[in-house]
């Protein structure tokens, strides 16, 4: 069974983003970029499946600028076998990403696609679900634990009230939540090996997908800022301030 792992190049989660003065977006110039942390969890899960003999091949796909090949290299260094880079310019909305991924699934026939539950840049939380819908496959979002069975998967999911277990027939789309696993650090020998693994370069046109955004971003602005308040010395002052504020 092949496992497909979409990986997105995003601003590193430790970087504090800055909104551009002209409100056209956030400043990405000279900012550290990394693999979306949820996608890293997806790569780790796929590689573990391969190590357990449950997956035959792990394919990392990235849709983004030329530099997204670095993101694919990271996945290859973690243990993915090969990559597909679909080169795009500008923002690509989740629906267009899902359409490209669908076309790749049609060509590659994976038994499982593991995406991150959301990308930490646009926080959309849509791609995996949209891909499942377009393929008419079942989905197991916000996965906390995966048990792969014969032609099916048992998945424990993180939901608002606690945990939920569902069973999906394969092929299926899984989206990762934080506690599915702890991604490994790639070792130096594996980073070296990853340089030799193949990456196919494609364009959205190869898959017949139009990536023109359907939503118009009118502006990107700073959220209202909070000011630091007062520091107090004792608990009674602390509670006094809260009483003063009318919230106790």
């Amino acid at each position: 069974m092949k496992v497909l792992v979409p990986v997105k190049r995003v601003i590193d989660y430790n970087v504090k983003v800055r909104v551009k003065a002209d409100q056209s977006g956030v400043d990405l110039a000279n900012v550290k970029m990394s693999m979306n942390p949820f996608d890293e969890i997806g790569v780790e899960e796929a590689v573990r499946l391969k190590e357990k003999g449950k997956a035959s091949e792990v394919i990392a796909v990235s849709i983004g600028p030329a530099q997204a090949s670095e993101t694919i290299r990271t996945a290859l260094a973690m243990g993915a076998d090969r990559g597909i880079l679909v080169k795009t310019e500008g923002d690509v909305e989740p629906l267009a990403v899902a359409k490209i991924l669908k076309a790749i699934c049609d060509a590659e026939n994976p038994g499982l696609v593991i995406t991150g539950k959301q990308a930490i840049d646009d926080d959309s939380n849509q791609t995996g679900q949209m891909l499942a819908a377009l393929l008419d496959w079942p989905q197991a979002t916000f996965a906390h634990k995966l048990e792969l069975g014969d032609g099916k998967a048992g998945v424990e999911r993180e939901i608002d009230g606690g945990l939920q277990t569902i069973e999906v027939k394969l092929p299926a789309v899984l989206t990762t939540d934080l506690r599915l696993n702890e991604p490994r650090y790639a070792s130096l020998p594996n980073i070296m090996k990853a340089k030799k693994k193949p990456i196919d370069e494609k364009s959205p046109a190869d898959y017949g997908v139009d990536t023109t955004p359907r939503l118009k971003v009118l502006k990107v602005s700073e959220p209202p800022k909070r000011q630091a308040g007062t520091k107090v010395k004792t608990m009674s002052e602390f509670l006094g301030k809260l009483k003063e504020a009318g919230v106790l």
Partner: peptide, 23 residues
């Protein structure tokens, strides 16, 4: 935008061939 709304609604959007506007 609860864990259930986030779960099923993008499926609906994709089938309708429209983007979802999240949260």
């Amino acid at each position: 935008a609860t864990t259930s709304g986030k779960n099923y609604l993008p499926r609906v959007a994709a089938k309708l061939d429209v983007p979802q506007i999240s949260e």
